[in-house]
Simulated assay, not measured.
Amino acid sequence: MNSQAAIIKDTSTIYYKETGVIWRLSNFFLEQIPFNHPNLVFCCIGTDRSTGDALGPMTGSFLKQLLSFPFQIVGTLDKPLHALNLEEITHKLNSAPQKPYIIAIDACLGNANNIGQIIIHPGPLYPGKAVKKELPPIGEVSIKAIVNIGGFMEYNVLQSTRLHLTYEMGQVISRSLLLAWHRSNLKVMDKSNSNSNYN
Rank of each mutant, 00 (worst) to 15 (best):
D53M: 01
D53Y: 06
A54K: 10
A54E: 09
L55M: 12
G56N: 10
G56H: 03
G56L: 09
G56I: 01
G56E: 02
P57Q: 03
M58F: 15
M58G: 00
T59D: 04
T59I: 05
G60A: 10
G60E: 13
S61V: 08
S61D: 08
S61L: 03
F62C: 07
F62Q: 08
L63A: 02
L63F: 03
L63P: 00
K64M: 09
K64C: 12
K64E: 15
K64Y: 04
Q65F: 03
Q65S: 12
Q65Y: 08
L66S: 10
L66F: 13
L67N: 06
L67E: 14
L67I: 14
S68C: 06
F69H: 04
F69R: 03
P70C: 07
P70W: 00
P70N: 06
F71M: 08
F71W: 05
F71A: 09
F71Y: 15
Q72N: 08
Q72I: 07
Q72C: 14
V74S: 11
V74P: 05
G75F: 04
G75A: 01
G75V: 01
G75Y: 00
T76F: 07
T76Q: 11
T76D: 12
D78N: 12
D78H: 02
K79W: 04
K79S: 15
K79V: 11
P80A: 01
P80Y: 00
P80I: 00
L81A: 01
A83L: 02
A83M: 09
L84G: 08
N85P: 12
N85M: 04
N85Q: 14
